[in-house]
Design a binder for these strands. Sequence first.
DNA 1: CATAGATCCTGTATGC
DNA 2: TGCATACAGGATCTAT
Length: 293
Amino acid sequence: MPERPEVEVVRAGLDRWATGRVIDQVDVCHPRAVRRHRDRVWDFAAALTGSTLRCASRRGKYLWCPLDHEGRADGHALVVHLGMSGQLRVLPADAADGPHLRVRISFRDGGPQLRFVDQRTFGGMLVDELVEDGDGGRIPASVQHIARDPLDPRFDQRAAVALVRAKDAEIKRVLLDQQVVSGIGNIYADESLWRARLHGARPARRLSARAIGGLLDHARAVMGEALAAGGTSFDALYVDVEGRGGYFERSLAVYGREGEPCPACGSAIRRSPFMNRSSYWCPRCQPPPRRSR
DNA sequence: CATAGATCCTGTATGC
DNA sequence: TGCATACAGGATCTAT
């Protein structure tokens, strides 16, 4: 469930179900799920066993829970990225293994397990060192490079606008660059661009600061609305920790709506190839720059 | 250094 | 029915 609203829904569920629980056993069912955990000296399961999970945090699309050992912070965290198809599920210990179970975490209290399920295995988990984040907080070293998202109270919009304008690339590509602004993926990029009446192929450096500011405002608004609806779920692949989908799919204006009328002007929504997937846009509200599909 | 494109997977939907 | 192709909520590595 991969963009900021969906990841935040998962974070809240993780926080509610896992905080304060002591890990009893970790089973890695597919080694690829743990490929980013590079510390061979301290293997993934051993690093977690006996630790207590602290409250769940998030930066962009990354989640993590700091670890306590024997009642004190040990300077590490369990980090999770859902990738394209990852789920964190809270399931009773006696529930059957689903088809794409990658990691199972059991707790000392014998209560519901935390299971990482991931069809395409682009997601993963690791135990990583916590470092200073420059704002008085702590963040996993592997998440340091991720920018704040537009809904983050510490998001610096002026700085983000300047960063966007400094990029020599199409605006959609910049919007998806997690080091510039985080949390936005293919759905909310297209929805934000539509609301801002900008075509994704417009060069970022030729947009005014005002236009980029407006675009970020729309990104913030659409992701806020999506979060309130529990996120966007096209199918059972994208669910919260208790297996429930979100309802924002029916509020999407353009994403996945090729041929359907634009909610603003009625023109047929277009789809064009973009980075091995698709962009959806309205030909009248979002005129493409010349020499673009 | 910065950017565009290919790549890692597994499954479903669609067309011939 | 069988098979081939396209496509999917992402990040990262690689050529240029």
